[in-house]
Amino acid sequence: MPQIEVENLVKTFRVAERQAGTWGALKGLLQRRSRTVRALDGISFTMEVGELVGYIGPNGAGKSTTVKILSGILIPDSGRCVVMGRIPWKARTAHVAEIGVVFGQRTQLWWDLPVIESFDLLREIYRIPPREYLRTRDELVAMMRLEPLLDTPVRQLSLGQRMRCDLAAAFLHRPKLLFLDEPTIGLDAASKLAVRDYIKRLNRQGVSVILTTHDMDDIEALCRRILLINRGRILFDGALEALRAQVSRDRQLVIVLAHEETWVEDPDAQVIRRNGHHLTLRFDPERISAADLIARITARYEIRDLYVENPPIEEIVAQIYYEEGTAL
């Protein structure tokens, strides 16, 4: 049985509209206008135990709404949603005791308390047996290297430190399912790596993870499967590679020229960027294999270095958003 089953989930919000200007404000007193926004427009997917799914989409696509429904905070208008055999919003307390949530924009910890005391409080809130709590806590402290932070009040932590503590806090009660809503937002490179490493390790222990993010490096580093959502509809559900193939098969060859002024031309490749000695060529691997292209280029030009890469996922996703936008 899948861990999460979502079928035809619809959620609409009423948004009050204000009219501009003084006259508009006066009219607003008499007559309120509101507009209905379909945050979710019939989404369906299932997720098995142990999966790590990247949930991506532009701002306002409906990502947070989905996560809120799945974690029992929000009630949908219609549709079916069963998470670990429960309907989240109907059995909220029992449900949230078995899931972990991290909202990157906000901390679950107590602002004025030392980290360790926040943990102790969570132990009480989630009624974790003392021995189990100590084991999990020490394990997490070691894994996230939190030891030096434990006695610091949360308000004095840096964003990266705070996020590490937040992630640990979300896992103290050993949930089987984690919702991570932009856990790497605003973090520096080292903290991002630490957070990704941690997510990966938890997933390896069998914890299912739904990760929403705008950081495509997160996706590339972590997720085998992605769900792409826009305007409340799921546009794509599958492996990252499949998404890539769906949009374009093209790959990129980056070459570093020995002489900046060299002019490179090839019948099967197209120059898409030129930056000093660096030159990016786009080619279709169906027409010419990477090996052949490289052989031809190196024979004709003086090359210092070269490598083949996939088009950055940002470009792919941006293209889908764009196509979707123009189609409507």
Partner: peptide
């Protein structure tokens, strides 16, 4: 103060993510 802040920013919904009354 903290609750006031949460309600103003809408973050109060996240309070529901804890298994408490």
């Amino acid at each position: 103060g903290e609750i006031q802040q949460m309600i103003r920013t809408g973050a109060v919904a996240y309070e529901l993510a804890r298994p408490t009354d």
